[in-house]
Each structure stands twice: as structure tokens, then as C-alpha cells.
Amino acid sequence: MNNRLRVLRAERAWSQADLADKLEVSRQSVNAIETGKYDPSLPLAFKLARLFGQRIEEIFQDDV
């Protein structure tokens, strides 16, 4: 699954650590999601969507 997390984060000038703090997860988690090594659960995806004020499908795109 592709995502625009890095772009959205850069637009707000947030570091990975900043985003991790806001999500209450580790920086490893943010890095793993950004690099596509880990797909977040629905609750975490909703949390990200709320944080960036976007819909989940605007942040995450299916590979197909």
C-alpha cells in the first residue's frame, strides 16, 4: 500500500518524532508506515486521517 505520509508530514514541517508523539507510537512505527514496510490498523489509519484532516483514502492508496 502506498501512502502520502512523508509529503503530508513535510508540508507541516513535522519530523518523524513529532508525528510519532502526536500518534503516541514509536518513531520506528512512523518510519515503517512511511516506507511501506508496515500497514497500519484501521484505528491508527483513522487517527492519521484525523490528524491530517483528510480521508483515509486520500492518505493511503491501494497498490492495484
Binding site: 503516541e24 507510537v25 520506528q28 512505527s29 515503517a32 497500519p40
Partner: peptide, 8 residues
């Protein structure tokens, strides 16, 4: 564990 990635 609240961090789901670590849990995984």
C-alpha cells in the same frame, strides 16, 4: 502495548 508496530 499501545504501539501496534512493536506488537507486530
Amino acid at each position: 502495548e499501545k504501539d501496534e508496530y512493536k506488537r507486530d
